[in-house]
Amino acid sequence: MAGPDEIIHQSLRLKIMAVLNTAARNEWMAFTRLREIVGATDGNLGAHLETLSKAGYVAIEKRFAGKRPQTRVRATPEGRRAFAGHVAYLRNILDSETF
């Protein structure tokens, strides 16, 4: 059984990865929308995205949508693998308790 992923395990980072994992592989999500879905503040979300980015789990892009600056995020293949592994680990804990 794979062990826990200490980077993803933190509650907000786990939610962020869950949201980004729902999107298609090359589909970006706007920072503002991600903030709305996970229910975080700008600063908190930014800090956790930075951690995930340093681990190579998310890609962050800053661009202009028209004249407005926009930050958007997507999960990398490594991030998707790490998320799937951590979810499997959590499920395994519950399954072990059941039997």
């Binding site: 949201v19 999107a23 804990i93």
Partner: peptide, 18 residues
Amino acid sequence: PEEAGALLADIAGVERRA
């Protein structure tokens, strides 16, 4: 196990919204 259950429930909730 309680923490794992709570985290999986959190994941299901945000996935639905996403």
